[in-house]
Design a binder for these strands. Structure first.
Length: 562
RNA sequence: GGGGUUGUAGCUCAACUGGACAGAGCGACGGUUUCCUAAACCGUAGGUUCCGGGUUCGAUUCCCGGCAGCCCCA
């Protein structure tokens, strides 16, 4: 940014030969201090062996010359803060630069780099429920944010599509479902059949359990009939998942479940054994770590079966070989932190150079309890989305809105409720929170956008669409605060990506929309004289564009009318 | 027992990675519509940032020691 450059050179001029690359202006924490503040005189005091106030004073003197035209006021405050007031003309030209850049100023730092993002990943043959929202929605926002930064993103859905449950399912399918259910097989029926069959597998005599195991072995050995059934279960599951994803505007490039890496697992284990990393322990093959906190990772169980560590290692090798990604991001709940630390450590030892990132999020609970069939508190995603749509439709229809609008608002509310929180926060689900339609909510932002659209449309009808000399309003306090916030948009996107926290972007969107609302409330636009009107309209239009872009990065739609 | 993570207003959460007087939403109370969409805006009340030390110009943030919740491993 221009301001940072002026700052750095002012430091360099006064204290030559030092590294000032970290020097930057931050938005002022309080408007009374000015528009921007620089705290680096304080930070650098020791290195420069000088009094921080003295440093700030000298830099300030330089800034008054080199920053003429950019700064209206340069001030030293407190122990050595540099407070900067920027001229409206300078803000206007920065806004113009932002407006003319193709992606609302988002830096294309990911050009030429490829990443894989692994998210959502539900288990096949089960219905998606509210517990799946977080990985799906947070993962998709990260996906969109990285794409916006220019990365070549491969979104992969690592389905739970292999394992003992399929023995139980196949046995249950054959004997517990009716002919009709078998013909019109649904995920709901598969789930029901699994529950019944699993219950029978717990019976004392163990007959059913053995039969399930036999079906599983047949499947693993490639029995044609069982393999065809398994394939059918997976296909039905994926098409049901895709129904959810399409409602949420989510697209995956690949659906490679655990089964995809099946044949690669013996090779992985062999490699580990050869490298002397995997050793036998109580019949199992395990990897031990120098770092005791990592404990022990089992790579082959005593019964010969593999587990997640092995399949994730196979998976990472496959992805590296096929895509050569710069990094791979895994979005899962925080219970899996130990697993990922172990798996990353082994992968690194085996020569994987790709940066591996785990984005852990707090598990969603309901009424304080984990969401599970056993707790009987399982709310299906389908039902949540229907309810979200229903509730927003009740409100929307009074204004002549249709079902499509109700979906945009209802689904937007659900997504935003999740994305506005730091992923690390555990969320206890409640209908009230998930479907909030006012205050800090998705619909609040959508509403702000619709008002911008309406305003621009009215302006156009009145033959006053803005532009004028192309400058932007940034003089009154309300204008200025909004303008300065808009300039922070690219940084908000970058920070969200660097921290893997879409909440940073959501927070910026809400704060900026609040500034817009305040501006809109106090500043007449269409009634103004042509010059002011054009400048304000330009500001509104740019805010609208940035808001739309920002919401799209969260996967939230922006209807032009509400 | 070991490890991870969280603890901020009545409730739900922020706080740009160490900055100035800790901010929003909901809820409560009061106000704003012959005016560009009131899903909005403005105002009031509400805080020992879990507790105790330490580091420093300065700590919600970093370090040490506790306490509590949740989770993982054995």
């Amino acid at each position: 940014m221009q301001i940072d450059e002026i700052l750095v050179s002012a430091f360099e001029k006064n204290f030559p030969g030092n590294d000032f690359s970290a020097v930057r202006a931050l938005p002022a924490t309080d408007p009374r201090f000015g528009d921007y503040q620089c705290n680096d005189a304080l930070k650098l005091a020791k290195a420069l062996r000088a009094n921080p106030r003295e440093i700030a004073a000298r830099v300030a003197e330089t800034l008054k010359e080199t920053g003429a035209g950019v700064f209206d006021k340069v001030e030293v405050a407190g122990p050595g803060f540099l407070n900067l007031v920027v001229s409206p003309a300078s803000i206007s030209s920065s806004l113009a630069a932002l407006a003319s850049s193709p992606d609302c100023g988002i830096p294309q730092s990911g050009r030429g780099k490829r990443i894989v993002i692994d998210y959502s990943s539900p288990n096949a043959a089960k219905q998606m429920h509210i517990g799946h929202i977080r990985s799906t929605v947070i993962g998709n926002a990260i996906d969109r944010i990285f794409r916006a930064l220019g990365y070549d993103v491969i979104a992969d859905n690592h389905l739970g599509d292999w394992g003992t449950q399929f023995g139980i399912l196949i046995k249950g399918y054959r004997e517990l479902l009716t002919d009709g259910e078998r013909e019109n097989l649904t995920v709901a029926n598969l789930e029901k059949c699994y529950v019944l069959s699993a219950a029978k597998a717990k019976e004392e005599d163990g007959v059913w359990k053995d039969a399930c195991r036999k079906e599983l072995v047949k499947l693993q050995q490639g029995d044609a009939e069982n393999l065809a059934l398994w394939r059918r279960f997976i296909d039905i599951s994926i098409s049901e998942f895709e129904r959810m994803y399409s409602m949420l505007g989510i697209h995956f490039d690949t659906y490679r479940g655990e089964s995809y890496y099946n044949d690669m697992m013996p090779g992985v284990v062999e490699k580990l054994v050869k490298a002397g990393r995997a050793v036998e322990s109580e019949g199992a093959l395990v990897v031990k770590f120098d770092d005791e906190r990592l404990g022990v990772a089992i790579v082959r169980k005593s019964d010969g079966g593999y587990n997640y560590t092995t399949s994730d290692l196979a998976c990472v090798e496959s992805r590296v070989a096929e895509y050569s990604p710069e990094r791979i991001i895994y979005v899962t709940d925080d219970r899996q932190q130990l697993h990922f630390r172990q798996f990353f450590a082994i992968a690194e030892e085996m020569g994987v150079k790709t940066k591996l990132v785990h984005v852990p999020f707090g598990l969603m609970s309901f009424q304080g309890k984990a969401i599970s069939t056993r707790e009987g508190n399982l709310i299906r995603l389908d039902d949540l989305l229907s309810e979200a749509k229903r509730r927003s439709y009740d409100i929307v229809k009074e204004r002549g809105g249709d079902e499509k609008l109700a979906e945009a608002i209802g689904f937007g509310a659900v997504k935003y409720a999740d994305l506005s929180h730091d992923p690390a926060t555990a969320i206890d689900f409640s209908w009230e929170k998930a479907l909030a339609l006012d205050g800090n909510s998705g619909p609040y932002l959508q509403y702000a956008y619709a008002r911008v659209c309406s305003l621009l449309k009215k302006a156009e009808e009145a033959g006053a669409a803005g532009v004028g000399d192309g400058s932007f309003a940034a003089s009154t306090p309300a204008e200025k605060r909004l303008a300065l916030a808009i300039l922070e948009f690219p940084q908000a996107v970058v920070r969200a990506a660097e921290a893997y926290k879409p909440s940073i972007l959501a927070d910026w969107l809400f704060q900026t929309a609040q500034l817009y609302s305040a501006f809109y409330q106090t500043s007449p636009i269409l009634k103004e004289e042509s010059d002011t009107r054009a400048k304000r309209l330009n500001l509104c239009r740019l805010f609208g564009e940035v808001l739309r872009k920002g919401l799209s990065l969260l996967g939230i739609e922006t209807p032009e009318r509400i």
